[in-house]
């Protein structure tokens, strides 16, 4: 990852210089469009057009059934911004992002640091931590719904063995969002773990050799070499994780079917519910754009933070 991210910035300039010396521009222009056409057609049809058309739908009363479609101006946005359910869904989404990102980054770091020590059984460690990431959300949800079953689930059996009262993990609105967090951490931490592992492998040996000569102990090496060297990776991982967590839908929807979801409904689920359960495509499109705005703001904020850091160093 670090390789892919850092290298190109230098190379693009170089390759551009090289391409400039190849054949004449007019024929090449034609060839270029030939190469680009398949992707661009798909890009236009399935990304650009929906993005634009969605904006149009958001100012109509379009229904799922194809009925409606009359212009309603900014009514949908006005309704969205005064809709307590939407705000609640946004708050839930942001809170989930906070409480999931922290363990997803810290645990991944701890796992990567431990595995990177070169203890025997490398493939087993990698398999254990990364395997859940390979599972479909449905599978993850089925496994955890089973574990969180209030009567016969493994989670309550474990608590029982420790002398703790059983918890209605998915039914109790006070805890069910955290049950989702637990399942999510289990599911996706492996991805961050691999990113950290790759970053660790890119730290030059010389740094450690120099430190060893200076007589630095393991703790010292960790705090003064490893962690600072991992900082760019950490920023990237946090950024990816925040964007991923904001898109929460699958596991929250799947694990809490049939449970009142007022306290756990993420914003993407509200988009789904307004559009497909409530048939209101126009309104749902408007909420989609509110969500999109949130993503862009977070994304731009993170990019700026990252660039500023890069400029400093």
């Amino acid at each position: 990852m670090t390789a892919a991210v850092e290298r190109p910035l230098v190379r693009t300039a170089a390759s551009r210089a090289r391409t400039a010396t190849t054949t004449g521009p007019s024929r090449e222009g034609l060839v270029s469009w030939g190469f680009l056409a398949p992707f661009l057609v798909a890009f236009a049809l399935f990304l650009v057009w929906p993005l634009v058309h969605g904006l149009y739908l958001s100012v109509t009363n379009q229904s799922l059934t194809g009925a409606g479609g009359s212009w309603v101006g900014l009514d949908n946005y006005r309704e969205a911004l005064t809709d307590p359910t939407m705000w609640r869904a946004l708050r839930t989404t942001v809170w989930f992002t906070v409480v999931s990102t922290i363990p997803l980054v810290i645990l991944a770091l701890v796992m990567a640091l431990l595995v990177h020590r070169g203890l025997p059984g490398q493939w087993l460690w990698r398999l254990s931590f990364f395997m859940p990431f390979l599972l479909a959300s449905t599978v993850v949800s089925q496994i955890w719904v089973w574990i969180f079953n209030p009567d016969i689930g493994a989670a309550n059996s474990v608590l029982g063995a420790l002398g703790i009262e059983p918890i209605a993990w998915l039914q109790d609105p006070a805890v069910n969002l955290y049950a989702i967090v637990i399942a999510t951490v289990w599911w996706t931490v492996g991805f961050n773990f691999l990113l950290y592992l790759a970053a660790l492998q890119n730290i030059p040996d010389q740094l450690y050799e120099a430190a060893a000569i200076d007589g630095a102990g393991p703790w010292r090496r960790l705090t003064s070499i490893t962690l600072p060297q991992l900082w760019p990776a950490t920023i990237l991982i946090v950024m990816l994780q925040v964007l991923a967590s904001l898109k929460l839908f699958d596991q929250a929807y799947q694990m809490l079917i049939g449970v009142s979801t007022d306290t756990t409904r993420p914003i993407v689920q509200y988009i789904y519910e307004s559009g497909f359960v409530g048939y209101r495509f126009g309104y749902s499109a408007a909420i989609s754009y509110v969500f999109f705005a949130l993503i862009v703001v977070v994304g731009v904020f993170q990019m700026t933070a990252m660039n500023r850091r890069r400029n400093l160093s």
Binding site: N61, Q62, S63, L64, A67, G68, S70, G278, R280
Partner: peptide, 11 residues
């Protein structure tokens, strides 16, 4: 609110 399956009430 109009029935969202028929928002213009034309059915």
């Amino acid at each position: 609110t109009q029935n969202p399956v028929d928002p213009d009430g034309t059915w």
